[in-house]
Amino acid sequence: MAGWSTYRGSAVSLPLANVDTDQLIPARFMSAPRSEGYGKFLLHDMRRDDSGADSADFVLNRHQEAGVLVAGRNFGSGSSREAAVYALVDAGFRAVIAPAFGDIFASNAVNNGLLPAQVTAEDAEVLHATLGKDCAEMTIDLETGVMTLGNRSIPFQLRDSWRTKLINGWDDIDLTLHHAGAIAAYKDKRHSQTPWAWPSAAD
């Protein structure tokens, strides 16, 4: 995964609360291998009618070039399915902006280079009002924690460890393997102090 520190791209507004991961990608698409590309599944049932045709007025269909999604509170709540993040990333998104995120969604996002940028409810309203049904160019700076839309600059919250990870594009497994010694020592200690933590053999 490549790191990034600034991004410039088209932003669109989806001013809905509680867009859960079941809506981001309905369960029936989740058996597909990632190599197939998950972009076409993003918000599938919200952006297409019963026959599977694109709804012409849905914001993501009108602005397929969008790379930033401004969303409502509690975005990505529900199921832990990382496929919801794959759908956003494969559709070209680099950032989602919302007043609050589902905890598991946010960590999944960071693990895939997608920024979950938390803004105040008031700032989210400003962004929604400014964008309306159109798209507009936005710049996001991870180092300073500020996004810029037109002449307006808005700060966003991001956990420090997540900022570092997004910028460096780190793979946690590689980082963790540097601590193999500490993990082995912990395991020995746990095994001697709490042998009950290992499963008994079934009779």
């Binding site: 199921s79 832990s80 960590s107 999944n108 497994i173 963790t176």
Partner: peptide
């Protein structure tokens, strides 16, 4: 799976994780 919190009923620290984290736990048990 997000409903892993179920196991907390026993006084366990139980939580759901995403696929990248599953791969991490498989590889490192941490």
């Amino acid at each position: 799976d997000s409903h892993t919190s179920t196991h907390g009923a026993f006084g366990a620290l139980a939580f759901g994780i995403g696929a990248t984290e599953v791969a991490h736990v498989l590889s490192t048990q941490t």
